Lab assay of single mutants.
Amino acid sequence: CSVCSEPIMPEPGRDETVRVVALDKNFHMKCYKCEDCGKPLSIEADDNGCFPLDGHVLCRKCHTARA
């Protein structure tokens, strides 16, 4: 995971895991958050999703503030 540096592995008792890929980086679902404010990001293409800027994973509000 690009945030916590832990491997993305299935939880005990499970055969599969879910990971998020954004900007060629891999994330646990729980680690997929705005780099500035820490708001959890949605994997859907909506207002709560990722608004990347200069290689950073940001929420819409933080993207607008940086732009």
Rank of each mutant, 00 (worst) to 15 (best):
C1L: 02
C1T: 00
C1V: 00
C1F: 02
S2P: 04
V3D: 04
V3Y: 13
V3T: 02
C4Y: 01
C4S: 01
C4A: 00
C4Q: 01
C4F: 00
S5E: 06
S5T: 02
S5G: 06
S5Y: 07
S5W: 05
S5I: 03
S5F: 11
E6R: 14
E6K: 05
E6M: 07
E6L: 08
E6I: 05
P7T: 12
P7F: 07
I8Y: 02
I8S: 02
I8M: 07
I8K: 03
M9Y: 06
M9F: 06
P10Q: 14
P10T: 15
E11M: 09
E11N: 14
E11D: 06
E11G: 08
E11W: 02
P12M: 10
P12F: 14
G13I: 05
G13F: 05
G13P: 06
G13H: 06
G13T: 13
G13W: 03
R14P: 09
R14I: 09
R14N: 13
R14W: 04
R14M: 15
R14L: 13
D15T: 04
D15C: 08
D15I: 08
D15Q: 07
D15W: 04
E16W: 00
E16V: 02
E16Y: 02
E16P: 06
E16N: 09
E16D: 06
T17C: 15
V18L: 13
V18K: 15
V18P: 09
V18N: 11
V18W: 09
R19V: 03
R19E: 15
R19A: 08
R19P: 15
R19M: 02
R19S: 11
V20Y: 01
V20H: 07
V20C: 08
V20E: 11
V21G: 10
A22E: 14
A22K: 15
A22P: 04
A22N: 07
L23R: 08
L23A: 10
L23P: 04
L23E: 15
D24C: 02
D24N: 13
K25T: 05
K25S: 05
K25I: 02
N26A: 13
F27V: 12
F27I: 08
F27S: 02
F27R: 03
F27E: 03
H28I: 00
H28S: 00
H28D: 02
H28E: 01
H28W: 00
H28C: 14
M29P: 12
M29E: 12
K30W: 05
K30D: 08
K30T: 12
K30G: 11
K30R: 12
K30P: 04
K30N: 10
K30A: 09
K30F: 03
C31R: 01
C31L: 00
C31G: 01
Y32K: 03
Y32F: 13
Y32C: 04
Y32G: 01
Y32M: 04
K33T: 08
K33C: 15
K33M: 10
C34G: 02
C34I: 06
C34S: 01
C34V: 00
C34Q: 01
E35I: 05
D36I: 14
D36A: 05
D36V: 07
D36R: 11
D36Q: 09
D36E: 09
D36T: 08
C37Y: 01
C37T: 02
G38D: 12
G38R: 11
G38V: 09
K39H: 09
K39Y: 09
K39D: 10
K39A: 12
P40I: 03
P40W: 04
L41H: 04
L41Q: 03
L41D: 01
L41I: 05
S42C: 06
I43H: 10
I43Y: 08
E44Y: 06
E44R: 07
E44P: 07
A45H: 15
A45E: 09
D46G: 12
D47Y: 04
D47P: 10
D47M: 08
D47Q: 08
D47E: 11
N48G: 12
N48M: 07
G49V: 07
G49F: 04
G49L: 06
G49N: 10
C50D: 05
C50W: 04
C50N: 14
C50M: 09
F51E: 15
F51T: 09
F51S: 10
P52S: 10
P52I: 12
P52E: 11
L53C: 07
L53I: 11
L53H: 09
D54Y: 04
D54M: 06
D54G: 08
G55V: 03
G55W: 02
G55S: 08
G55M: 04
G55Q: 05
G55D: 15
H56C: 09
H56D: 02
H56P: 02
H56N: 06
H56W: 03
V57W: 05
V57M: 08
L58T: 05
L58N: 07
L58S: 04
L58D: 02
L58P: 02
C59S: 00
C59T: 00
C59Q: 01
C59G: 01
C59M: 00
C59K: 00
C59V: 00
R60A: 15
R60N: 15
R60S: 11
R60P: 04
R60T: 05
K61M: 12
C62R: 00
C62A: 01
C62Y: 01
C62Q: 00
H63A: 05
H63F: 12
H63T: 08
T64D: 15
T64F: 11
T64A: 13
T64Y: 11
T64G: 14
A65E: 14
A65F: 15
A65K: 13
R66V: 09
R66K: 05
R66S: 13
A67P: 12
A67V: 06
A67D: 15
A67T: 05
A67I: 15
